[in-house]
């Protein structure tokens, strides 16, 4: 058992008030005397635990405990609980943010503003085949055309550049010319979309049909773009018919998006 002198030494060491030689001497004793070391650790922890402004960090954790906890935190169970906690946090914080108090006299004004806003929002929400077309058309996801050995005069590159610059007339001419002697489903897609932009809807449908007649992996793109053409034309029935063909196979192009689009279209 330790006397009060030992405690004074421990305190002196923790407070940094020991002389250099006493400090080195004490450190040596700590290394040699495991009982003293244990006492020292407890006193040090107590200093930090019972002082309201401090905190006892753990520098020598029991590794068995650490591993048990580690295994748990890596489990799916732990992850799903953490996700549930994060969700509750989001729910709670967002519910607090929308609550704000207004002076009483503001309420009638706020109510009439809400009424007017509601009126406009109602109109905003009015979906049409045209608005669905605008929502779902996205030419940015057209693939970049790969340069091919048989493309002697760089027509694919030129066509793509024209398309990017929204010069659809030129783009359609280049792709049309190229496709006279070549088969290239990507170029066909570019041609069809160029026709949409030129409002040549019949030509667009014809082009996408030719894509569908082929055997390429890109063939199902024909359904997607065709359904967009029908949306643009306001032909709900034909658009739905085409989407249904696309939805026959889960591996088809834009399957998930087509599902969402169909759901919205049905409601019109």
């Amino acid at each position: 058992m330790f006397d009060d002198n030992t405690y004074s030494l421990i305190d002196g060491y923790l407070n940094g008030t020991l002389s250099n030689s006493n400090k080195l001497d004490f450190e040596k004793r700590l290394k040699e005397d495991s009982e003293l070391y244990e006492e020292f650790i407890i006193q040090k922890d107590l200093f930090h635990s019972l002082d309201d402004n401090s905190w006892a960090f753990e520098e020598q954790p029991n590794l068995d405990e650490v591993n048990t906890l580690k295994t748990y935190f890596e489990s799916d169970d732990a992850k799903s609980i953490a996700a549930a906690i994060a969700k509750s946090n989001t729910d709670y914080q967002s519910s607090k943010k929308t609550v704000f108090k207004l002076p009483r006299f503001v309420y009638p004004i706020a109510a009439s503003i809400a009424l007017i806003l509601g009126y406009f929002l109602l109109f905003e929400k009015n979906t049409t085949t045209d608005s669905l077309y605008a929502e779902y058309k996205n030419w940015d996801d057209l693939p970049s055309l790969t340069v091919r050995a048989d493309d002697n005069d760089n027509s694919l590159t030129k066509g793509q550049t024209a398309f990017k610059n929204k010069e659809y007339k030129e783009a359609s001419a280049i792709f049309n010319n190229y496709l006279k002697n070549n088969t290239n489903p990507q170029a066909t897609t570019y041609l069809g979309v160029s026709y949409i932009e030129l409002e040549e809807y019949e030509l667009a449908i014809k082009t996408f049909n030719s894509l569908l007649e082929g055997q390429s992996l890109d063939r199902s793109k024909g359904y997607w773009y065709k359904s967009l053409v029908y949306l643009k034309l306001g032909d709900k029935a034909k658009a739905l018919e085409t989407l249904n063909l696309l939805l026959e196979k889960e591996s088809n192009y834009k399957y998930q998006l087509a599902k969402a689009l169909k759901a919205k279209l049905v409601k019109l």
């Binding site: 922890d45 635990s49 019972l50 753990e58 954790p61 405990e65 906890l69």
Partner: peptide, 22 residues
Amino acid sequence: EQSDSIQEILEQEKWELYTEMF
């Protein structure tokens, strides 16, 4: 983050032990 959680748990348990004994 995970090691932080582990550390925090052990330290909280230690704090509980010390305050309980106190």
